[in-house]
């Protein structure tokens, strides 16, 4: 067990966990931030995507000991009430079916647009292909990313 001071969604949160604990489980089990989802536990599906200093990161495979002073943003911290352009675009295109993967998709998309405000289809494929949607909403996700890029 070790104590960590984590910068999460603009607040410093203190947790006492084993250093090997993935950030995903720190968020879900210790900080009651349930928006970040468990999908595979091996960085293959993207459901657990968060931002670490603005970069998309699979939190299921990212130990808490590696975070250090970097700022973590989760879906709950992306905006106060869903005003982020990517969230708005998701609503506009009514993307979700079951919705389970969508927090991860949104976090990947937001990180993509931050670095590349006008992505091509190929850029979107490259950035998003690590995020699986079992319901098959890929076309709407792509449309929503393009809409968000214009906002």
């Amino acid at each position: 067990m070790a104590t960590f001071q984590l910068k999460i969604n603009g607040k410093v949160r203190k947790v006492e966990v084993d250093p090997s604990t993935p950030v995903l489980w720190v968020l879900r089990d210790h900080l009651n931030l349930q928006g970040t989802k468990y999908g595979c536990g091996m960085a293959q599906c993207g459901a657990c995507t968060i931002h670490v200093d603005g970069m998309a990161m699979r939190s299921c495979s990212y130990p808490v000991s590696a975070v250090g002073k970097q700022a973590i943003t989760t879906i709950e911290g992306l905006s106060a009430n869903g005003e982020h352009p990517v969230q708005q675009a998701w609503l506009e295109h009514d993307v979700a079916q079951c919705g389970y993967c969508q927090a991860g998709q949104i976090m990947s998309a937001a990180a993509l647009l931050k670095g590349n405000p006008a992505p091509s289809d190929e850029d979107i494929d490259a950035a998003m292909s690590g995020n699986i949607c079992r319901c098959g909403t890929y076309l709407r996700i792509k449309d929503a990313i393009k809409s968000a890029a214009k906002k």
């Binding site: 349930q34 879906i75 969230q87």
Partner: peptide, 12 residues
């Protein structure tokens, strides 16, 4: 439930 989905509310 769209807004709950995109803001990561504990729905599941």
């Amino acid at each position: 439930e769209g807004i709950k989905v995109v803001t990561g509310k504990p729905l599941f």
